[in-house]
Amino acid sequence: MSIDLMAKLADLDLTLPDAPAPAANYVPYVQSGAQLFISGQISNGPDGLILGKLGADMTTAEGAAAAQTCALALLAQANAAVGGDFSKIKRLVKLVGFVNSTPEFTEQPKVVNGASDLMVAVLGEAGRHARSAVSAASLPLGVAVEIEAIFELN
């Protein structure tokens, strides 16, 4: 993929955050052959963690915005994994999204669309991916969303 990640994000009025450090005993990413596995990234914006439970104290739109912050962190981790040379990324293969939600909440796919839409906006056709969007009774630190990714490398 020949993309200037920083320029594309700037066109969207977004900036790439620093790649978050692991919060426990794991690594932020692992390369296995031509696949890059990015550990789950939690919803964290410029003002700190985005906490809440969809269906209780957060709207679907707020959840989608939280998912977008996860996507930015995933891109930051991918960028770190390739040493800042985003041309080494061929495509996004899969996202797995976890939504902190009540048992009655059924709009997990709309929440995770916040990440999916950003990936397609930034990566174009190479950002179209397989996906899961599932409910979780609770997520680490009480965050609203956590998303992990698999990228294919050139």
Rank of each mutant, 00 (worst) to 15 (best):
1 M>G: 10
119 M>I: 07
143 V>D: 04
149 A>W: 04
14 L>A: 01
106 T>W: 08
55 G>E: 09
145 V>M: 00
23 A>S: 12
8 K>G: 00
148 E>C: 12
118 L>I: 14
112 V>H: 01
99 V>P: 08
102 T>W: 09
93 V>E: 09
126 A>L: 15
142 G>Y: 08
6 M>N: 15
80 A>M: 08
150 I>F: 07
91 R>T: 01
154 N>F: 12
93 V>G: 02
126 A>E: 15
32 S>Y: 13
70 C>I: 04
128 R>K: 15
133 A>L: 10
85 D>F: 08
150 I>C: 11
84 G>V: 14
147 I>H: 03
57 D>W: 06
120 V>H: 12
95 L>V: 05
42 I>W: 07
38 I>S: 04
140 P>L: 00
13 D>V: 08
132 S>C: 09
44 N>D: 07
51 L>G: 14
139 L>G: 13
112 V>C: 04
56 A>N: 06
73 A>R: 14
26 Y>T: 12
70 C>D: 03
151 F>L: 08
12 L>V: 10
89 I>S: 07
83 G>S: 09
35 Q>I: 02
48 G>S: 06
83 G>V: 09
108 Q>Y: 04
125 E>M: 11
128 R>M: 15
16 L>H: 02
24 A>Y: 13
125 E>T: 13
121 A>C: 05
32 S>E: 15
98 F>C: 07
